[in-house]
Amino acid sequence: MKLLVLGGTHHVGRAIVETALERGDEVSTLNRGLSRDPAPGVRALLADRTDPEAVRWALDGQEWDAVIDTWAWAPRVVRESARLLAGRAGHYGYVSSRGVHRWPWPAGADEQAPLVDGDPGGSDHADYAAAKRGGELAVLESFGERALLARAGMILGPYEDVGRIPWWLRRLEKGGRVLAPAPARTPLQYLDVRDLAAWMLSSAERGLSGAFTVTGPPGATTLGDLLTTALDVTGFATELVWAPPELLLRHGLPLGMEFGLRMLDGSVPTGMHDADVSAVLAEGLSTRPLRETLADTWAWLQAEGDPAPRADAPSPDTWLDAAAEQRLLDQLTR
């Protein structure tokens, strides 16, 4: 395909670009050109997406088979891009989020679960759920049945910049005893970023449209599987000390929130890790083994170092206060 990626330098965008190049697609990217040099073989178009005239100038006179957009902020930016590209591209894939569903998410929810309100012309991105829903509506305005809305769940794998697996790997790297949020059998539902990229590109090629919940199958792995596999693939000499959620809450330690396993008040949310993904699996989504995701994430961190955190992501110190952790470890291991 002749592909345009709006973004293309971080996390999902970078995975999409690399996967497209591996497929042999002809890839153009549009971004400010400030974060990373374009990958070899990529045609880099430069513009600030918040400047409609700059975007119009950068895209002038060009056409693509498909566009993939990773924008996560003000929906009006998506609307302006989609309107500009409506007559120049056959397909528009938008990386959305399960967050567009109204909270609390029902257990076993599929694509029909209630949605939040969104404004396709909105300029605010403080409300992530409303911004993503506004972005969806903006794409549908211009592309209609040529639009694919990928409502992603928890995305892991190389290039992650939202503070989940990189944070845990660096924490486990220190060795010794570390707290983990019990119970170890807690189910996790996630998707490797490269599997998301491959599915979106294949779907663009086929002209697949509609809204899909895009994450891995429920019940496939647990928190214990994730952390013990991380120790296995890295070889760290670290002991996991599992602490009950109520004890973590009492000590002011929000461990588990990084995976959506509990809320600030200690309550356990429903629907986070049991989404019905039968629709996306029927449309060809495939998922790689957990071991591969974790090993490749660790290899990337070793090669490139820790990524700069996203402005809308929690700080690395959010999940754990070292002094509070040590006090609880001492209590649990007396």
Rank of each mutant, 00 (worst) to 15 (best):
D296F: 01
G13P: 04
T333I: 05
L21Q: 08
V12P: 00
M263V: 07
D37H: 11
D265Y: 07
D127G: 10
D232N: 11
D127V: 03
R177Q: 11
P106K: 13
V116G: 08
R102A: 15
A197N: 01
W64S: 00
D225P: 04
D37G: 15
R133C: 12
L191Y: 02
T50S: 09
A220M: 06
S315K: 14
Y94I: 12
E53L: 08
L30W: 03
A282I: 09
P289I: 09
P38T: 15
T318A: 14
P254K: 12
R250Q: 12
V268G: 03
W103V: 10
T293L: 01
M1F: 00
T234R: 11
W73L: 04
R151K: 13
L115W: 01
L240K: 14
L3E: 00
P120Y: 04
G176S: 12
T222P: 05
S209Y: 02
V78L: 06
P52M: 10
E239N: 08
E160T: 11
R151I: 13
M1I: 02
T318W: 07
K174H: 07
R49M: 05
E141K: 10
H91N: 05
A20Q: 03
W167A: 10
P183T: 12
T229D: 07
E136T: 13
W71G: 06
L226D: 04
W167N: 09
S203A: 15
A282Y: 04
D321G: 10
I155E: 00
D296P: 03
L45W: 02
F259K: 11
L59I: 09
D192G: 09
Q112I: 04
K132F: 01
D127Q: 05
D25N: 06
A74L: 03
R164F: 03
T293C: 04
E22A: 15
R310A: 12
P166E: 10
D225N: 12
E325W: 07
R194K: 13
P217V: 14
S278W: 02
K132H: 14
V268E: 12
Q62T: 09
H125T: 09
T228H: 09
A150S: 10
H125L: 03
K2Q: 03
D25R: 07
V55S: 15
P52Y: 06
S123N: 11
E80L: 10
L227F: 08
M200L: 14
P269M: 07
P158V: 01
D119S: 08
R250M: 02
G219A: 15
L249C: 06
G266M: 10
A295M: 06
D60N: 15
A20C: 06
G7T: 12
V139T: 13
Y128N: 13
G134T: 14
V233K: 09
A220P: 07
E304H: 11
R250P: 03
L226K: 12
E63S: 15
L328H: 06
G216M: 04
P289T: 13
V233H: 01
